[in-house]
Design a protein around this nucleic acid. Sequence first.
DNA 1: GCGAAAAGGTATGGTGCCAGACTTTAAAGG
DNA 2: CCTTTAAAGTCTGGCACCATACCTTTTCGC
Lengths: 243, 243
Amino acid sequence: MGTDRTSTSSRVFTPLDPHSRAETVVRRLTDAITFGLLTDDEQLPSEADLAAQFGVSRVTVREALVALRQQNLVETRRGRGGGSFVRAPATGTASPLRSRLAATSLPQLRDTADHYAAIAGTAARLAAQRADADDLVRIGEELHPRGRPLHRVERAFHLEVAAVAQSARLAHEEVAFAAELGTLLWAPIVPVSSKDPDPITEHQRIAAAIGAGDGDLARQLTEEHVARAVERLIDLHLTLVDP
Amino acid sequence: MGTDRTSTSSRVFTPLDPHSRAETVVRRLTDAITFGLLTDDEQLPSEADLAAQFGVSRVTVREALVALRQQNLVETRRGRGGGSFVRAPATGTASPLRSRLAATSLPQLRDTADHYAAIAGTAARLAAQRADADDLVRIGEELHPRGRPLHRVERAFHLEVAAVAQSARLAHEEVAFAAELGTLLWAPIVPVSSKDPDPITEHQRIAAAIGAGDGDLARQLTEEHVARAVERLIDLHLTLVDP
DNA sequence: GCGAAAAGGTATGGTGCCAGACTTTAAAGG
DNA sequence: CCTTTAAAGTCTGGCACCATACCTTTTCGC
């Protein structure tokens, strides 16, 4: 009992976030640029808007932008029509992703994937229980690549399923994973194996299960879909770590 | 496609945590005391230790402790053997929990529960896949109330399952839920209905499924267990909101 | 071409937080 | 009873961040 209490209590005292606020903004924007959430030539909101949206002062945003300029990730122009524009690295776009993948240990990869599968699977299950006709149309629209690269298709599909699940928390978690594992999981650096089912076909099957209201099947198919992507990612990880 | 990009990009710019670090520490400790993670007369770590563990300076911890003293949640003594001691409110212990429950909307309750069921269910599933003999012994130990109130038994059981799952993330999520929904879900203010299976019996069945390596059953039983607790919580919520 | 508007750039006083140093208090141990 | 030890209490200079105000730059619209 003493052991139990000690064990429980010690979990209360975990560290607060060590990053400065400016640093956190830098990381947010750097990640978004590096991983394709913000694209080349895209204009960021104005400093004042960024400050309002991030909930920080303009000084903090400015400091973050200085760092981004030093990393050549944005270019800033003054005056009307000015602002900060994304300068996504054209060459070696995949390098940060590869570095990140190589720097992530195998247990971490698996653990994150387990967590993600739980979220994405549950989202699919709830979507099957809760989707109305409009929802199914919206999911159906995400089955079409429409010229987008596969990683964007993947991300959009799962985000849409999470949205249809009508769970703010799961949608929020899905967004968080999109900025984290999802970036690696659906990264363009991971080739789709010819042995695997076509990812779009997998989406179609998930969507069909959702449409049929079969939550358990939707979850199972989603988990398998994620598991296959994880296996591919792990294969790539192994080639990076130990070529 | 423009809509897609705009939609995705706007999700990058969400607010940073608005709370000061001292305030965050206050919330951490207040919650832990109010919801029973830290019990009456329990000694907190020293200021220096708290600072190290929270990753803040001593000034910040001191400020938090001032606030806690003003709320009569701790009592501080100087000198050797001194320190801050928990003064959990004896009367009206349940009031903060009831207030919190009444203040939480029904969709929020359900959403949080959905999220929690995904985590706890997956933890049970992974535990079934990964538990060794020692793990099963440890889970078995949590089947015995050992004089603890039911809400502590519930919390300890699920935390143990998450630990056995060998997923740092899920364990971390389980801990986070223990401080959030779990506190309400397993709260002593929610009477166990005589129509429901005995919670200990439910734990035993989950443990048996884990022991048998049946991940899907373990997950299903866990989800049902959580769903029943949620229904009871919602019943109570309704009496508080609209008596 | 000029004025307005939108944007970045600069400055300032105040607050929160940091690391570090020193003092006071009270209990434990010899 | 005295000394040691572990704890809280106080202080300080420096940095991060805040809100606010003002200035400069550049484009857009008339």
